[in-house]
């Protein structure tokens, strides 16, 4: 006998994400979910970004890693409050789920936060699938990875609102076709803004920071 069920497998996460979104909206906090493969330079990029946002935009960070607190230690130097989530306590999860964000956010006084950045676990597959209650998703890719990464991980590039192509200062030393990488990103997600930057030299950073500031302002001062 067939029993109709019709439920989303990720229902529990989606419900929790909706609760997060309501809480963050009530508290006037913009939430940015930053995702990438491991080693794309996400932490350096975020450190430089936060330095340009503070103190105008009061920023807090949740950092997800399977283990170690190295990234949190690096980001804490910006003066932003940082909470490290080690997913090995949750079975070495490859992504941050909505309930983990809810718990981590309890560490902040949300009334004093305008922007909450979530540095997700380095992984182009799983984090794309899990809503955490964010307002925008950004993917960071670096020029030391293959130009075809967007074609291999289409869901990630479909769900994101912007893409950052990092480490462009290394281009003279690589046989990397930047045009092809950008074409591949846009093929998966027509119209997506692509920011070509070097977090190390800070080339191109201003355009990305302006985009982010606009997004935050749109939510906080509509």
């Amino acid at each position: 006998m067939e029993i109709k069920v019709v439920r989303k497998v990720l229902d529990v996460n989606n419900t929790m994400a909706a609760q997060n979104r309501k809480l963050f909206t009530d508290k006037k906090v913009f939430v940015l979910n930053v995702m990438s493969s491991p080693g794309s330079g996400k932490t350096t990029m975020l450190g430089k970004t936060i330095s340009r946002l503070m103190p105008d935009i009061r920023t807090a960070v949740i950092v997800g890693d399977v283990s170690t607190t190295n990234d949190a230690d690096r980001l804490a130097k910006t003066g932003a409050p940082v909470v490290q989530v080690n997913t090995d306590a949750f079975g070495g999860d490859c992504h941050l789920a909505a309930h983990v964000i809810a718990k981590a956010a309890e560490n902040f006084t949300l009334a004093d936060v305008d922007l909450l950045i979530v540095e997700n676990v380095g992984n182009l597959v799983c984090p794309a699938e899990f809503d955490i209650g964010e307002d925008a998703k950004v993917v960071v890719l670096s020029v030391t990875e293959g130009e075809d990464k967007p074609l291999k991980y289409p869901l990630m590039f479909r769900v994101c609102d912007a893409a950052i192509l990092n480490k462009i200062d290394l281009l003279p030393y690589l046989e990397y076709d930047k045009g092809e990488a950008v074409r591949n990103i846009v093929q998966i997600h027509p119209g997506i803004p692509v920011f070509e930057i070097s977090a190390r030299t800070e080339d191109g950073m201003e355009f990305w920071v302006i985009w982010l500031k606009e997004k935050v302002k749109e939510k906080l001062n509509p």
Binding site: V5, E129, N184, P190
Partner: peptide, 28 residues
């Protein structure tokens, strides 16, 4: 992996299906 219209090349598209992860029924 191409997400623009094959007829008019527009990138303004709406995905109708392909992101499901649903349980539809159980057989007892």
């Amino acid at each position: 992996p191409a997400f623009s219209c094959p007829r008019c090349s527009s990138g303004k598209i709406e995905l109708i299906s392909g992101q499901e992860l649903d349980i539809s029924s159980i057989e007892i």
